[in-house]
């Protein structure tokens, strides 16, 4: 229940409402429950050795950009993961938006929060199974200067179409839509795992901070 409440707050935040009224909270709650019912959360992950030469690379795939290189500094291996709420969630969102655009928008945000939760749960499972003492945070294509065009390669390495039904379009959109891929670095030594990109635990280090509409106003309380 506590988790549901936290998710409602998070969905409201994604919709740009810091203090949703009771009516909006009710609609968010309903949307969340319906998306949960429609979704079939699936995730797959695999462990790969990391080659660190000029650029880090996994099974022959070069991870391009300075941000991922910094993220994986000192790592000897990576875990690649992919997670999706499945096509059933997309079908539900299509119907919801077609019937009532306002509710559809809320449901869309709810699905966004749920896929994030799925990533969180998958990461927890990874952390429980991986022997490496230290793991970085998740880093996804499109964060910083890691190109989004990497999606197809990551999916191939995970055999993601077979294992969880996840594909990428030629434009690198993940389909089903409510899906995420990510890279976690494995290291024998403590990693600098401040999350610099995406939307997670810290806004302080995020390069999008100056203009991000989702920026937390209660930032100080969340900082370690």
């Amino acid at each position: 229940m506590c988790q549901q409440n936290a998710m409602v707050t998070e969905i409201a935040r994604m919709l740009g409402c810091m203090h949703p009224d009771a009516a909006l909270q009710d609609r968010i709650q309903t949307a969340l429950e319906q998306v949960q019912q429609a979704a079939q959360p699936r995730a797959v992950w695999r462990y790969f050795p990391l080659e660190q030469q000029n650029t880090p690379s996994v099974a022959g795939i070069h991870l391009i950009g300075s941000d991922i290189a910094r993220h994986l500094l000192g790592c000897h291996a990576v875990v690649l993961m992919a997670a999706t709420l499945s096509a059933s969630a997309d079908s539900y969102l299509r119907c919801a938006a077609s019937e009532d655009l306002s509710f559809g928008l809320i449901a869309d945000a709810a699905a966004g929060v749920l896929v994030e939760q799925l990533c969180h749960d998958t990461e927890a499972a990874i952390r429980a199974q991986i022997k490496s003492p230290f793991l970085t945070e998740r880093f996804s294509p499109g964060y910083g200067d890691l190109p989004i065009t990497l999606q197809a390669d990551l999916l191939r390495l995970l055999d993601a179409q077979r294992t969880i039904g996840l594909t990428a379009t030629p434009q690198s959109t993940l389909l089903p839509m409510k899906s995420v891929t990510a890279i976690l670095g494995c290291s024998e030594h403590p990693v600098q795992d401040a999350r610099r990109f995406g939307c997670g635990s810290s806004c302080a280090l995020c390069p999008h901070k100056p203009y991000c509409m989702q920026r937390r106003t209660d930032e100080s309380s969340l900082e370690p």
Binding site: L15, G16, C17, P20, L24, R27, D100, L101, S102, F103, L105, I106
Partner: peptide
Amino acid sequence: LFLPQLIQAAT
């Protein structure tokens, strides 16, 4: 007032 409410009014 927020986007869902704006859209609701528009609907």
